[in-house]
Design a protein around this nucleic acid. Structure first.
Length: 446
DNA sequence: TCTGGGGTCCTAGGACCC
DNA sequence: TCTGGGGTCCTAGGACCC
């Protein structure tokens, strides 16, 4: 059995600040968002005095003062550096590391002895504390989704910050106590949909029919069901270059003139371009947006965006800014109080051309014939099934969802992301009346 | 008065290609 | 009796994550 760990830095930003202010250990600490608008990180002590996540500073300032809460503006350069140190530490304990976010990583632990694994992770935890000053929690389980839950338990209920969830007798009790919304991948909306189906706990979702869940939550939801049952659908993945790069800010104060917006957008573009070059990519397009403050309901509202595509992808700051300036002039309207602007670099490609690779560089006549035969066999099978009218039988795993009329058959393809299941890929090419009739017949049979 | 800043994946339909 | 079959790319919208 393969095992995964989720390692999560406790109250990461607050912990980072404390590394450089050790007298604050044991004290309530919060870190604020850009412009010092709201709370984005809290130490355990700050949580205990009742400061919620996202709390606007102005609402809680007096209360924080009363409790002697230490308040920090955010320092992302520091957090990024601390994060890199923590992430590097993992490689001393397993080769298989996926950086999931600034404060979380999944570890692949296949090949480790299950009985000594918790101790191994405890050693890792102590080492990270010693090397970086950051406290972490570790959840171990057969799938990533379960490891996430195990991590919650490690944080809440253990003294040593490590919990391994492999005890099958305890599983139902543990999962029965977890609300569906606390599962990784299930948020409020999906939680509400599941509750309508009578599914309110992790245990109930674990026992639900994957097919039924797919109907309401798509293949993403189905994967979660499999994962809760200990069947991994998600694996450790290498860090990929970003597909889009975003840079945006809300302004400290309202701005109305074009020049201020231009200055802001130019600097956002420069930041984004820097990130772009760091990952050695070029952008094929740039998307620029501005908007008024949606919270000020009495103000006239305006929000718009423009997209510029390049004939040749570029990473040149000046070219990107030129394009962004054109876009902003296009969407700017006088008479509004703007609150936020941003740019997004899209259609990113690698700076160096990709390597060409062939499935079979030099097929022999025999191989060619074989692959053609294989193709014909598939077609034959489809035709046979069409003749028998069984193609859409439920056991074939076909889905009629989204069907608009005209689909006549699907092709069964294997989806490696779902263990032991297959997807039917539908086509909607056959629009002739005769085919539609045939479709209706087949649907009747079903 | 104040209310963050990033990202990813999936679905569905249509255009288009060989 | 009907009839090609397999694919990619694009866009917009909706969901999710930290």
């Amino acid at each position: 059995m393969s095992l995964y760990a989720l390692v999560d830095c406790n109250n990461f930003y607050a912990s980072c600040e404390r590394v450089f202010a050790p007298h604050l250990i044991g004290q309530p600490v919060v870190v604020l968002s850009n412009n010092d608008g709201c709370v984005i990180a809290r130490s355990d002590e700050a949580k205990a005095v009742g400061i919620p996540m996202g709390a606007p500073l102005h609402d809680y300032h007096a209360m924080m003062k009363k409790h002697g809460v230490a308040i920090f503006s955010s320092n992302y350069a520091l957090y990024g550096d601390m994060s890199a140190r923590v992430m590097r530490s993992f490689h001393h304990f397993t080769p298989d590391v996926e950086i999931y976010s600034i404060d979380e990583a999944f570890l692949g632990l296949s090949g480790f002895d299950e009985t000594t694994l918790p101790d191994h992770m405890r050693r890792m935890r102590r080492a990270i504390r010693q090397w970086t000053g950051i406290p972490v929690s570790v959840g171990i389980a057969p799938t990533k989704t379960l490891a996430k839950l195990a991590n919650r338990i490690a944080k809440k209920y253990t003294s040593d910050g490590v919990y391994m969830m492999t005890d099958h007798d305890l599983m139902p009790r543990i999962l029965g106590d977890i609300e569906v919304e606390d599962i990784w991948g299930i948020s409020k909306r999906w939680g509400a949909r599941l509750r309508q189906l009578g599914i309110g706990t992790a245990l109930q979702l674990q026992q639900a029919s994957p097919r039924q869940i797919r109907q309401s939550l798509s293949v993403v939801g189905e994967r979660i069901v499999h994962e809760l049952n200990g069947h991994p659908c998600l694996t450790i993945e290498e860090v990929q270059p970003k597909q889009t790069i975003m840079s945006s800010r809300s302004f400290g104060k309202m701005v109305s003139d074009l020049q201020s917006l231009e200055e802001a957008v130019a600097s956002y573009t420069a930041r984004a371009a820097e990130k772009l070059r760091q990952q050695n990519s070029r952008a094929g397009g740039i998307y620029v947006f501005i908007r008024t403050n949606r919270f000020r309901q009495n103000d006239p509202q305006y929000s718009n965006a423009a997209m510029v595509g390049f004939d040749d992808a570029t990473s040149d700051t000046a070219s990107l800014i030129r394009a962004a300036m054109g876009a902003i002039r296009h969407i700017y309207r006088a008479g509004y109080r703007y609150h936020k602007a941003g740019v997004m670099l899209t259609d990113l490609t690698a700076q160096d051309g990709g390597q060409m690779s062939l499935l079979n560089p030099d097929p022999t006549p025999d191989e060619t014939r074989q692959s053609q035969d294989k193709r014909m066999a598939v077609l034959d099978r489809i035709n046979t099934k069409m003749g028998q009218g069984t193609l859409f039988h439920a056991t074939e795993g076909i889905t009629l969802k989204g069907h608009k009329g005209g689909n006549i058959y699907g092709r069964r393809i294997h989806d490696p992301r779902i263990q032991g299941t297959e997807r039917w890929r539908m086509r909607s090419q056959f629009k002739s009346p005769a085919y539609t009739t045939r479709w209706n017949e087949l649907a009747q049979v079903k």
